[in-house]
Nucleic acid binder design. Structure first.
Lengths: 228, 228
DNA sequence: ATGCTTGACATTTGATCAAAAAGCAATATT
DNA sequence: AATATTGCTTTTTGATCAAATGTCAAGCAT
C-alpha cells in the first residue's frame, strides 16, 4: 500500500555522494582545469550545502588522485607535467589491455557500436564535450564487462587524473584529426581475438596521449574559481 | 629567534590525518580482520575524537579499497574470496615488477639489507607482526626509490586490500616455511640486472599468495569490534 | 626604496546537535 | 509455531559554531 521508495535513482542518495559524482563528472568532462585551486567552502557555496558533505567528497577525490592536496591546506586540480603523463600512460598501458582481455567474452557489442556511432557524430559536429563523454563511455562499457572491480576502479582513477589535461588539449586541437581505434576494437571483439583487441586498446591509449605530448604546454594556469 | 615549529613529526598533523595513519597501520599489521564491521562512532569512541575527523579518514580508506561500504550504510573490512585474490594478485604482478625496474638505479641497497636482516630475525623468532612489517618495509623501500608516485600509491592500496587476509593466514601458518626472495632481489640490484630483480619480485608476490591460496577458508568471520 | 612585521581576512578543522534512516528485537496475530 | 508489524536503539548524515591556522596586503622601520 505504501511505496515510500522513489523510482528516481537520484533521490535518497546522500549529499556527499551526489557531490562526489557531480565533481567527478566535472573533472572528467571539462569543468575543472589543471592548476585550478579548489576551496571547500567555494564548493559548498556553489552547491548550496554545508561544509560537512563537501569534506567527504573532496577527501575521496584526493584519495583517488583526482585532486591534489599540497602540504599546507591548499587543494587544486593537479598540474600535468611530462613525467606525470609518462607514468599515467605506463599504468594505463598495463591495466587497460588486461581489462579488455577479461571483458572480451562478456561485453555487449551492440552497446559498444551504439556508443561508437554517437562518437562519430560528436567528431563530425566537432563537439569536444560529447567526444570525451563517448570515449569514456566506450572504454568503460568494455571494461565493466570484465567484472574485475578493482582494476576498473583503478582505471577510473587514472582517467580522472588525466581528464582535466586531456580536456585542455582537446579544446585546443579540436576533434578533426582524431583517429578512431574503436572500430578495430569492435571487430576484434567480434572475432574473439584477444591480441587484436589489446593492440587496438594500446593504440588508442598511446595515440590519445601522443597528440597530448606534441602539444605546447599550457602557459597560464589561472586560478579562476568562478564566484558568480 | 622563535622556533615555534616542533621537531616531533607527530604533532600538528590534523586529527583526521593521524586517524587515517593509525587505521592504515591497523589494517596493514593485524588489528583488523576480514569481515569485521566498522562503525564511525565506534572508531570515534575508541580514539576519543568526534565524528567529523573519523568520517574523513574512513571515507579515504573506503576510496582506497581498504574498507568496503555495502550499499546501505555498513562499513566493513573486505572479505576475501578466490576471485578477489586472483585480481589483486594480477594487478600486483603487473605493477610491482615495473616499480622495481624504475627503482633499481636509485635504491639504497644498504637500507634493503638492513631491513632484510631484521626480517630474518623476525622469521627466526616466529614473530608474525615483525615479519609483516619488515616485508612491507622492504618492498616499499624499494618502490619508493622509483619516484613513481602514482604507481606507489596504487601499490599501497593493493597491499592495504590484501593485508587483513594475509595477516589471518600468516597467523595460522606461522613464519616457519617462509622462503626469502629478498636476498635474490638484493643481488639482482647489486648487479643491476633488471630482469633478475623483476623475477625475484614476481616470485615473492606469487609465493606469498600461493600459500595463501592453499590455506583453508576462514570459517567464522566474527564481527568483534572490541568495545573495551 | 626595500625588507620585515603586523593585523585583517579567508579557510580549514573539530565538536556538537538535531533529524533521518536502518537495524534489531519483542510482541501480536493468524 | 511462524510471520508480519511495531517501536526502540544505534548509526549516519548534514548543519552550525568556535577555534586554529594560513594567506595576503598594508604599514613601518631602516
Amino acid at each position: 500500500m505504501d511505496l515510500p521508495q522513489q523510482d528516481l535513482d537520484d533521490v535518497n542518495v546522500p549529499t556527499h555522494e551526489r557531490l562526489y559524482r557531480d565533481l567527478k563528472e566535472g573533472l572528467l568532462f571539462g569543468q575543472f582545469r589543471p592548476g585550478m585551486s579548489v576551496t571547500l567552502q567555494g564548493i559548498a557555496d556553489e552547491h548550496q550545502v554545508s561544509l560537512t558533505p563537501v569534506r567527504e567528497a573532496i577527501r575521496r577525490l584526493v584519495a583517488e588522485g583526482a585532486l591534489e592536496m599540497h602540504g599546507n591546506r591548499r587543494i587544486s586540480v593537479p598540474e600535468m607535467d611530462e613525467t606525470r603523463i609518462e607514468e599515467l600512460l605506463a599504468v594505463r598501458l598495463m591495466l587497460e589491455p588486461e581489462l579488455a582481455k577479461r571483458a572480451i567474452d562478456n561485453v555487449d557489442v551492440k552497446l559498444l557500436r551504439a556508443i561508437d556511432d554517437q562518437m562519430d557524430k560528436a567528431i563530425e559536429e566537432g563537439s569536444v564535450d560529447d567526444y570525451l563523454k563517448c570515449n569514456f563511455a566506450f572504454h568503460f562499457a568494455l571494461y565493466r564487462a570484465s567484472n574485475a572491480s578493482i582494476m576498473i576502479s583503478m582505471a577510473e582513477s587514472l582517467w580522472l587524473q588525466m581528464a582535466p589535461y586531456m580536456r585542455v588539449v582537446c579544446g585546443r586541437v579540436g576533434t578533426s584529426n582524431l583517429e578512431d581505434q574503436h572500430k578495430r576494437a569492435i571487430s576484434a571483439i567480434e572475432s574473439k581475438n584477444v591480441r587484436a583487441l589489446q593492440a587496438a586498446i594500446i593504440e588508442d591509449v598511446s595515440s590519445g596521449a601522443a597528440f597530448v605530448r606534441t602539444t605546447p604546454q599550457s602557459e597560464n594556469s589561472t586560478n579562476l574559481i568562478d564566484k558568480s
